[in-house]
Design a protein around this nucleic acid. Sequence first.
DNA 1: TAAAATCCCTACTGAATTACTGGGAATTAC
DNA 2: GTAATTCCCAGTAATTCAGTAGGGATTTTA
Lengths: 142, 142
Amino acid sequence: MKFSSRSHYGLRAMVALARSYPRGPVPLAEIARSEDISFSYLEQLMASLRRAGLVGSTRGVHGGYQLTDAPAEVTVGQVLRALEGPIAPAECASETGNSVFCDRETDCPSKTFWENLRDNIAQVVDATTLADLCPGDTVKVP
Amino acid sequence: MKFSSRSHYGLRAMVALARSYPRGPVPLAEIARSEDISFSYLEQLMASLRRAGLVGSTRGVHGGYQLTDAPAEVTVGQVLRALEGPIAPAECASETGNSVFCDRETDCPSKTFWENLRDNIAQVVDATTLADLCPGDTVKVP
DNA sequence: TAAAATCCCTACTGAATTACTGGGAATTAC
DNA sequence: GTAATTCCCAGTAATTCAGTAGGGATTTTA
């Protein structure tokens, strides 16, 4: 049971962006360097985050990426879903609709468990914001 | 973020064993049939569960597998750990000791989050027993 | 206009993991 | 002794993951 490196790297990158919010766009090369992530790989992660609307990008010489919303408004759940898709500890217990595939459907006791676990994970990731992961930063009212 | 099919099949098998507890050993072929799992694959899963002490086995003609403890005494957490190892949503946040590997170590904000998520998942899986997954069975005091 | 910086896209690849399959040895009941 | 069963280990096909590579497209600076 693991989250992929996409999530680990992606979350770290988002925290990095949160720390320099709202000071204009940050070039990827800078994040790649400070977080020690492959530049090309990070590019792909940012593409997913951009498509999800979590970050905005600016091209050109002083371009880069920046959060579209304040760190306190962005949940870790949003980040993880953008990077890994819906939370689903089991095929039969995905957040998004029905990945029908198991014929047990209605009365599978295990399914009930997996759904319960899924909801619990969702509750945790949705209750944590990027601001919570930026210790020392007093972004909120001083 | 998924649990592997080991967990899905293994948990289903354990629920099946729980349902026929404590009526002596159940042959694997029977579980494989009723749960529609490959016999050979199921064998491997049971080996893990046996090594973890969760099930006992009897060889020979009327042999099979059976729970070593009552369903209400076996948590889903025990089953999942036997099948997949320690709960660890991230390398740096494993239940068992330190898989030191990330140099950020102490002050990584993300690490704190992963540990928090891990503890939450652990809490859920450890609070659920096989008895909870056996609806209709009135195993407890009638 | 030209050059530099930066994002954007897509395809590929090597490694690891997963999900099995198969064969045979040991054990027990009858 | 034979049939039913667990036990054990080796191999393998498919998938996923993590990362690489390279060529645009767009914007700013000069």
